[in-house]
């Protein structure tokens, strides 16, 4: 009897320690994200001991050998490719989500689900490589431009890469719209398309917006695929066909040549910090959308 009680007591103590272990591993997530912000931030902000804030953000002359650190063209390049990717990819992804949620027969849906997973699983270098060997030459011959590298090639590849994000999250949002809303609309004599357009899409709007913002986060941070097709030239893009550069692609091209701790190296960490803050900002926006939906 005594031994039984003791054994049970041991089990309960064990139970408690296991619980601490779980809490610790959960708290590790917070520690990691804080460490990323602090270390990347600290390394990046050192740039400002040698470079002025306005030079970094508002000038486009990038020539670290000559001590010029104007990163505006990379920031603008990142924003351009992201917007282009959304313009090209979001309508297709949304239409695909509507198709999967409401129109496709169930056997086709069963095929398309794992297919969207495969989209995610294709490595970004493979996207970049296909961009380099198909899209860039295609743009070169089709639009009769000198290189084919540039915003359009990057935006096109990114548009494909963000499809799974938009499709899966929007589809979830569409499917979670309560059935009675849809039935009421159909019962009033609306066609399926009228129901989708006037009832389902507005009701699923918060989820759709979330999917688009997450897609933007993926596009702005994409490194390898963009680096392979954008042309990597530090200049402000004035057309869709002009080689330019983005924050991540510039980091990956230059990091290997820069001594760790130099102003040049630090400025690349500053670019990483800008990227980090943009993606954290997007998470906050998504949270706001989710809260409004609950309210």
């Amino acid at each position: 009897m005594d031994a039984d009680v003791k054994q049970h007591q041991m089990k309960l103590i064990y139970d408690r320690y296991v619980r601490y272990l779980f809490i610790a591993s959960a708290c590790l997530m917070t520690i990691i994200i804080l460490a990323i912000i602090i270390f990347v931030g600290q390394q990046g902000l050192r740039t400002f001991t040698e470079v002025s804030v306005s030079e970094f953000f508002f000038t486009t002359k990038w020539d670290p050998m000559e001590g010029q650190y104007g990163a505006a063209s990379f920031i603008v390049g990142s924003l351009y490719v992201t917007l282009l990717a959304i313009l090209l990819g979001a309508p297709l992804g949304l239409a695909g989500a509507v198709f999967m949620a409401k129109i496709a027969p169930s056997w086709l849906r069963e095929i398309m689900r794992p297919a969207t997973d495969l989209y995610v699983a294709i490595p970004s270098v493979v996207y970049g490589f296909v961009g380099l060997t198909i899209v860039v030459p295609f743009i070169r011959t089709q639009f009769n431009v000198s290189s084919g590298f540039g915003l359009l090639a990057a935006g096109f590849i990114l548009a494909i890469m963000i499809l799974p994000t938009i499709i899966s999250i929007s589809e979830d949002a569409l499917r979670s719209v309560p059935r009675p809303l849809e039935e009421a609309s159909l019962a009033l004599g609306a066609t399926r398309w009228q129901t989708i357009w006037k009832v389902l899409l507005p009701a699923a709007l918060p989820g759709i917006l979330t999917s688009i913002i997450l897609a933007m986060a993926r596009a702005i941070g994409e490194t390898m695929a963009v680096q392979m097709v954008i042309g990597n030239t530090p200049q402000l893009a004035k057309s869709l066909f002009m080689p330019t550069s983005t924050l991540p692609s510039e980091i990956v091209v230059e990091m290997g040549n820069t001594p760790y701790g130099s102003a040049w190296g630090d400025s690349l960490f500053l670019m990483a910090l800008v990227l980090l803050l943009i993606s954290l900002g997007m998470i906050l926006i998504i949270r706001r959308i989710a809260q409004r939906r609950l309210a």
Binding site: I33, L34, I220, G221, T223, F269, L276, L280, R287
Partner: peptide
């Protein structure tokens, strides 16, 4: 913890690499 996990999921991989 939830906010941290969501944030970590959107950190661009190049930033993770530099970290």
């Amino acid at each position: 913890i939830r906010l941290s996990t969501e944030s970590l999921a959107t950190v661009p991989s190049i930033v993770l690499g530099l970290f």
